[in-house]
Design a protein around this nucleic acid. Sequence first.
DNA 1: ACAAAAGTGTTGACTTTACACCCATGA
DNA 2: TCATGGGTGTAAAGTCAACACTTTTGT
Lengths: 215, 215
Amino acid sequence: MDAPRIESTLVSVDVLALRFDPATRAVLLGVAPRALDPFAGELALPGVLLGRGERLRDATRRAVTGKLGVAEEAMTATGQLATFDEPSRDPRGPTLSIALWATVDPAHLGGAGPTWVPLTAVPPLAFDHDRIVADCRPLLADRLWRDTAFTSGLLGREFTTAQALDVTEVLTGDRPYPANLGRTMDRIPGLERTEQHAASLPKGGRPPLVWRWVS
Amino acid sequence: MDAPRIESTLVSVDVLALRFDPATRAVLLGVAPRALDPFAGELALPGVLLGRGERLRDATRRAVTGKLGVAEEAMTATGQLATFDEPSRDPRGPTLSIALWATVDPAHLGGAGPTWVPLTAVPPLAFDHDRIVADCRPLLADRLWRDTAFTSGLLGREFTTAQALDVTEVLTGDRPYPANLGRTMDRIPGLERTEQHAASLPKGGRPPLVWRWVS
DNA sequence: ACAAAAGTGTTGACTTTACACCCATGA
DNA sequence: TCATGGGTGTAAAGTCAACACTTTTGT
């Protein structure tokens, strides 16, 4: 807090960019092959060095647009997860890593395809990113249905019960009964069940309800 | 994550150093008057600039021993809370602040007295430290009885039901029934009720049970 | 004995979980 | 009309809050 006596730390922002894919019923994590020296060519979380005076949210945006090639408008929400301070995590030297989540709306995805891998089957990543993903998974699960920014960012403004079931299953590890999840969602302020039903599924079956965020 | 294009951010570590005082039945926050230029003389959370390659826990230790004059052995546990990134929070320039908690054992307190203020009545602090304390309060309350390192650090290796009631009241805002808190504690792994009873209270009344951490 | 404060047992309300049954759709 | 899968209602199980009552101390 006083005069810097030693050279200050580098701070990187590493992002868990998430989107839900209704077709494969999976939550996908955005990763990109590294362009430069350490771990060049290997997959890694999108990350940037935090600029002086830069806000975490802006750095997150920079990482997702720059490294993943996702359009700015596609980013729906962001938030903090945790900080990783292992000095050896970057071979170039000690670097603090602040992990954040960001949700991406598949509808506004540009053409250039970043690599999206299922959150349930993340391949080995560069640096300590495997550990970051592993440590942050329970934090993400905890946010679902309790942090509305996160939940609505992931599911979009409108979604069906079936999609809600899928997302919950991926993040928490088990699939709730549809009835019970419906009651959970009924208790969430700003979320309402509509009269609409989604287009029915290829295999038949009753078409699911559509839910919508209002606030 | 690549070559630094802009000057990197300064990172400070600001600590919510907490101890429980059975005599006044209060949770106390350690603060210290600032020695140097910005806000000199005003009270502030103990904080230091994070050194290059320094671990957060070490910086926390440095802040608590250096700024509060608390002995190294008195620090019982530490943990992360949140990161504050408002660029204008430090008049000297943009500085990231990582807030952490640390628990201090009153038994090992040195002679030199830092300022301990009740967590329920924190005076105005320098920088944005008022905001940090306000934002972190619910995070602390959430950790009680769920994070054993935090809880045992705050209450010590042995404590009475009465003290547990007091700490819970300060952090959560209302005082549970002794019976119900006892049942909550029964469910915590590593915590056991002993056969001992504490010395009785000045005003009379039944002496409370002693609880002890085992693991 | 009385007041104070902690501990015990129990009850009712509420929440969570589970499941049997009903409905809507494609094949 | 059958298989598929979501929706409804409900009942059992579990959790939580409240309180009457008992126990142990100081005065």
